[in-house]
Structures are given as structure tokens and as C-alpha cells.
Design a protein around this nucleic acid. Sequence first.
DNA 1: ATCTCATATTACATCGTTGTAATGTGCAGG
DNA 2: CCTGCACATTACAACGATGTAATATGAGAT
Lengths: 332, 332
Amino acid sequence: MRATVKDVARRAGVSPKTVSNVMNGIVPVSEPTRLRVEQAMQELDYVPNLSARGLRNGRSGVIGLALPNLGTPFSAELAQSVVEVAHAQGWSVQIEETGSDPQREQELMTRARANLIDGLILNPVVLDESAVRVGVALPPVVLLGEVSQELADRVFVDSFAAARDMTLALARPGRRRIAVLGINQGRKSATAIQRTQGYETALHSLGIPLDESLMIACDEWTPGSAAESVLRYLDTNPLPEALFCFTDSMALGALNALWRRGVQVPEDIAVAGFDDVADGRFAVPSLTTVSFDKRVIASEALRLLTERMADRSHGQRIVSVPYNIEERDSTR
Amino acid sequence: MRATVKDVARRAGVSPKTVSNVMNGIVPVSEPTRLRVEQAMQELDYVPNLSARGLRNGRSGVIGLALPNLGTPFSAELAQSVVEVAHAQGWSVQIEETGSDPQREQELMTRARANLIDGLILNPVVLDESAVRVGVALPPVVLLGEVSQELADRVFVDSFAAARDMTLALARPGRRRIAVLGINQGRKSATAIQRTQGYETALHSLGIPLDESLMIACDEWTPGSAAESVLRYLDTNPLPEALFCFTDSMALGALNALWRRGVQVPEDIAVAGFDDVADGRFAVPSLTTVSFDKRVIASEALRLLTERMADRSHGQRIVSVPYNIEERDSTR
DNA sequence: ATCTCATATTACATCGTTGTAATGTGCAGG
DNA sequence: CCTGCACATTACAACGATGTAATATGAGAT
């Protein structure tokens, strides 16, 4: 049977509230009493019941982190950053997977209101205005990524600009036949749209006409799906001079597919990714990518979330996280 | 202001307990009453307060998942499996990172007792008997991996046998100079010890004398650390015929290092890993590895955990998850 | 009409913690 | 010696949901 404040109080010869005061440190407690209470807590191996505290305070100390696909290295690195930053501030993190399912995204927002979660960091893929039922009191939510959403705070990397810059970088040594991988045919993700537009804008500014046959579909955004798409593509198309993949995961799959076909990277084709995951840095060849600090995303998201929890009235806030084109062996 | 059972009850013209009965479905409720209550819940957009429920029931519906390093692809795939299996059974998952710190591992076990966590799935790296204070009432815990621990249930892949089999597989085409990567110099992890012993046993059965210079240290188990170790190793040592890395992550780093040095895989050296992560399947060349079903690990761990929660009295249970040597391009 | 008995519903107390308001204690100033 | 005041401590209620035990309701048997 676990000890409660009552037990500690009895043992220390004080009231339960005094024990609470010792723990919370807001109401002053005299030195001798504090020592007696602390010793009693030690002796009884007291651990506060967070459910009770959560009920009383209306806050659980837990935030939710919801990502479309938990199995990717990118998710892992992001989750790691969020957990570390959150932990440093005394928060726990509950993870959820949306599987890019708008209904599940919606459900998670509702669930947050069940009060085991004080706030939610959500990386939506398809959530747009229509998915958010107006009139429902939303919990504090911070969205990650490029979503047109007017009701929640947001942290994002400028995918449009980054994709544009990467395309320009790929074109610099005179490459003109630059392909992209990651166009979604079915549900179109906001991210894919932004990156596609960045690509198109870059081509336009270079005076390179848009070539539909260089835009390779791949709706799963996994290395497996990417490898498959690239293999199929190579069967019926001439080799482009460069391949810009919308994620590192896809780029790794693409590298594998090219290698299988005996295509040399970067000699025959330059390859680039997006996200800067660890496995990309050590790919063969090491992968050029759009890099950004996931720790910054995590801390900014948490900052917005906590500020929003303290003051729910202020307007929508949007934070842009800087990125950087990281040139590695796959493009030189 | 969120609606409570009381609000729903008032609106439906019943008592709070009846609302509760409708939700839980254990105590029978007449059809007309149930409909009235359900409609009231709808209208008020009622969501139960899980803190209150947790306090009353003593169970929160949340389990903890604690891994040494959340940033790795392996962690991501495992966490994904756990979340999916847990979700299917109505559990939420809170993630924690131990950073291989025994004190943090201990702390998490204590924290679990704070009752926001009904049980803990812990992948300990260094936790041994001494780290578990006897006399402390442990929460239901399931350990992942090879840990000599008598007090908690456990799910593991037989690292010893798998490492032995992989070593034998590497030796099959007549390779004799087989190196291993992943020996820890500082804190020795149970996993590393098992895999090392499997390696040694295989060599012994093949009549190959143990060569200390073929056992490469790398205590971080990340691709970066592995690449560094391999590069340093190649500077001062002749090339082995095979390299068995204790994780896929390290193997990816090793592949990168070998490629940098112009060493051909598998022509000049065969490379193998352990864990079968997605990025290994699409490495260049695709990585031979010890494969096992992470979904099985997740569901077995959750099964042991829930069974233990229902009946805390029965003895320690240990489940071994089958593995398989997956031969890919990096060894043929 | 009366008494069972099964079933549906309710009042009440409780889980552990903490805010509020009240009480107790000791000391300085009049 | 009493008042006033600062400070430490306490009693009590409340957060929201649900198990327990008691009560209400109605059908069937006598």
C-alpha cells in the first residue's frame, strides 16, 4: 500500500496541508517542521499521486506529441528532442501516431481535453481548416509544419524556401534535368505542396521549363516506397542529372535503388534529401540535405505551448526555424 | 468550462452514477435512460476526466516506455510497435529516455509509482541486480533485452545465439578474419557481453583462435561513433575479411567509413548488423542483419505487463522472441 | 391485496492533493 | 497587560468519477 500525504503527516506530527506545503515550497514552512516532514517522506518512501494532483490542479504535467509515422528516423530524432527539452522543464511526453489520418488527428485534439494531457504538439499531414470543428474548445495545441490553420500556434521550417534553395544548389554546376521525388498522388500533404512549389519556383527563376516527367510520385515517404518508385521510374525514363527527394528517408531508398541499377552517385546523378537525419550523414555516399535544428523546433514548440497554457487569450503565433543546405558527397 | 458527469446527469434528468453506468457498461441501464444520457453527453460534448478516473480507479491507462536512446531508428521502430499494440488495447504510451543512466532507470521505476503510469516497459542497458533496491515495491515492469534481473518479467532476443549464428554465417564462405564492432570499454552493457560471447563461441567452434585486435571498441553505438572507430581502426590495422557490427546503426556508420576509404563491400569485406532497421534494408549495399519482429516484442511485452497488473503474485516470466539471419548484399 | 424478488436507480462516501479561510503562536509597541 | 501584526499551521471543502449499499419500481406468485 502506497503512502499518502496523510501517512506522512501523521508520522511527522503535522497536518496533511503542511506536507503539501513542504512539497510545493510556495507557502513558507519553518525549518524544523520541514526537516521532520522530509524525513517522514524519506522513511515512508513517499511518492505523490499524480492523478490526484492532476485532478486537483487541473494540470497533469503531461504533453502529447503526435506524429504521422513514429517509425521513421526523423520521428525518432524529433521525439528525442521533444522529450529532452520537455523533461528539462518537468514535463512528461505521451506519444501518439496519427498515420496521416485526419480523423485520428481530430480525435487526439479531443482526447487532449480528457486532461491527461495539458497540451498537444501535433505534426499534421492533412489537417486543414475543415478538420477543425469550430466551436469546440481546443486544448492548447502547437502545430508542426506547413499547415494552413488559423486557430493554433505553429512552428515550421520554411519548406518552400528550402526546397527552392536546394533546387538552386542542385542546378549550380549546370545541371538542368532535376527530378523531384515525393509528389503525393492521393491525399496531398501541405508539406509536399510547399516543397513542390519551391522546386517549381527555382526552375522558373533558372529559366528551366517544368517537365512533368521529372516529378516522381511516391506517396508513402518511406525508403521502401521510394526505392520502388525510383526503380520503376528508371525502367522507363532516361536518367535525370539530379534527384531531390522530399525526405532523407526517401533519399536513402533512392540511393539504394540507383546503386542496384549501377548508377553512380554523384557522378551520374546528384541526390539530395530533406531533414538531416543521422543515417543520411552516414549514407553511401553521405547525403546532401536540408538541415535544421530539431532541438530548436522542440524548444520553440514547448515554449509556445507553455505560453499558451499560461495565457490562452493572445493571438496565433508562428515561429519559423532556420534551415541550412548541407552539401555532402551525394552532390559533389 | 468542461462538462462533468454532474452536468450530463442534470441534463438527462438522472443521477451522476447512472451516467457513469452508461459509460462503463457494467451495471445495466434501461434503454430509454441510456439514450437520454448518451444524447446529453453528445450535446454537452462530454469527455471524461482521466485524472479523476485514475484517482478513483487507481489506474491511469498509461504505460511507460523507457529506452536508452530515443534518437535511433531502432527506438523509433520499437516505439511505433509498442504504441500501435498499446493503442489497440486502449492504452496510452508515455516515452522516456534513460541515456543508459542507471540512476535514471531507477528513478523511472520510482516515478511509475506516482500513478500516472500503470506499468513500465524498460530497455535497461546497465541495470543489474544491484541497481534494484530490494524492499521497494516495484511497479509492474517488463524488461527488454538481456539483463540478469530476477524481479521483473522480461522479453528478449537471444543475442548470444544470434551473434553466434551470424558469426557462423559470415565464416561460411571461408572467411576467418572476422572482426566485431561494438565492444564497450567503459560501462559494459549486458547486450554487448552476450553478443561478444556468441561471437567468441562461434570462432571457437570453427577452430579460429580469438584475435583481440579484431575486436573493435565503440561505446556509443551510433553511426557517427562507429564510423569514427572504423576509420581509426583502418589507419593502423589490416583489413579484416568480415565485420559484424552489434547494431545496424553502427553498421551504417561502418559502411560509410569503408566507402570513404575506398573499401568495397562485400568484395573486400563483408559487413553485417543487428536489429533489421528500415535504413539497413536500403543501405548501399543493403545490409545483412539479425532480424526479428518488433511487433512481437511489443505485443509480448504488453501481454506480460497486463497479466502482471492483473495478478502480481505469479513468478517471473521470460519470453524469447525468435530471430532470423537476413542475408543481403553486404555479405554476398 | 400482500409479499417476494429481480432490476433500475440513487445517495453517499471515497480516491489523494491542495486552495481558502480560519486558527493558533509569539513578539513588538502602546 | 492588552492590542495589533506577522507568521506558521490547521480544518474543511473541493476537484470528477465510481464502488457500495440502500432505495425505488414493477412483475409475478400466493
